[in-house]
Nucleic acid binder design. Structure first.
Lengths: 210, 210
DNA sequence: AATAATTAACCAACCAGTCAGTTACTTATA
DNA sequence: TATAAGTAACTGACTGGTTGGTTAATTATT
């Protein structure tokens, strides 16, 4: 029947690779369209399998969704904690480094769109919201609060409400990644994230230095 | 059949009031659950009608969605423009007033959750995204850019990249309202928005003054 | 009585989840 | 080495429940 004798099999058994590929495809579509609007047939197609295969690896659409968020988010947060733990830098240098690296490494990775996704779906998935708060939000805040406290203690920064200051640091970065995902496709030119980060740190540091 | 002779009719004809009531109910659910996850039966129930009635006033679920966003967003944006046009204040006072009023009036209104909603659904509704960009985002930016330019010209603010500075102003406010909607139900105590605004303006103005 | 608003039953399409069957791959046997 | 028997990854057609949208009947109003 098949004239090509070097023909590939119609599919291959790749038990180890499937979950990551499925998660990758799923995350992309969940970010793009949201949970409810994403069709599992489409996820399967993009992952190069059929819908039945999805259910060999994930028990339900909801579990696939949660797994995708969890698996993608954890490496990013570990990175941030590592940067702070490793580097022997002043608080100001640490902030510059963290926010700068963050932009480059996290904001450009597949984890990029997760803020938008989680914010949009938190209302429908209480346990996901709790997971994200505990494992991402609070851990990032803790890292930044630590840096700020050091700066205040050493006299580099003036006394600040740390909770507010943390929000001040991350808000422009987070919101910009969210916006890139939401409106990026509808605008001609994308914002220069590196330049914007530079600007943000400049204004921010002027505002919090003694 | 009905033993109560003072009984009300089972329903009343209220052609004028229905659309606003339906939009109110719809918006609340769309913000809470997203477009796809919101059931029209539920919208109808919350609006005190049945599903069929929805289709007397809106031709489809999608048109109801767009109408809800449009009707709710326009008054808010008009308010911001009015504040700036009316007041005879210094750029710094204007910023304080605008951001402060904004928090109080807009962030506490039903328009509150629309940022989150639009961001989440922009990918599924290109024309809504364009509408929001044109009628909200760009108009708000224009107002703020105007204030900043005045401040720079008068020497109160140092020379700034205005596009970036606008983002710097609005990011913490917008992101906080988005977060209140997404995670508010899962946290014990809500953030004191007034105090946070105060803090934000303080840091910001220190950062951009000459 | 005539009309217009609203209801409630209805339909058709869609989609998450299932499962019987198929196919790639592995291991045992000659 | 060749081949048969066995295993499990994978497929794809199917289904049962759900829901956007329609319409014939009902009820309020003029």
């Amino acid at each position: 029947m098949n004239a090509d004798n070097t023909t590939q099999p119609r599919w291959q058994r790749r038990k180890e690779a499937r979950p990551a590929e499925i998660i990758h495809a799923a995350l992309q579509l969940f970010i793009q369209k949201g949970f409810a609007a994403t069709r599992l047939d489409e996820v399967a197609k993009q992952a190069g399998v059929t819908k039945g295969t999805l259910y060999l690896y994930f028990p339900s659409k909801e579990e696939l969704f949660k797994a995708a968020v969890r698996e993608t988010v954890v490496p990013s947060i570990l990175l941030a904690e590592k940067i702070v733990a490793d580097a022997q830098l002043s608080p100001e240098q640490l902030l510059r480094c963290l926010v700068g690296e963050w932009i480059r490494l996290i904001a450009e990775s597949p984890a990029n769109g997760i803020s938008k996704l989680v914010v949009a779906e938190a209302g429908n998935f209480p346990d996901l919201a709790h997971f994200y708060l505990d494992e991402v939000v609070y851990r990032v805040r803790k890292v930044l609060a630590e840096i700020l406290q050091r700066g205040i203690d050493s006299g580099e920064f003036r006394p600040l409400n740390i909770e507010f200051a943390v929000k001040e640091i991350i808000s422009p970065v987070i919101l910009q990644t969210i916006w890139n995902h939401a409106f990026g496709p509808y605008r001609r030119e994308r914002l220069d994230m590196a330049a914007f980060t530079e600007f943000h740190l400049d204004v921010l540091l002027r505002g919090i230095r003694t």
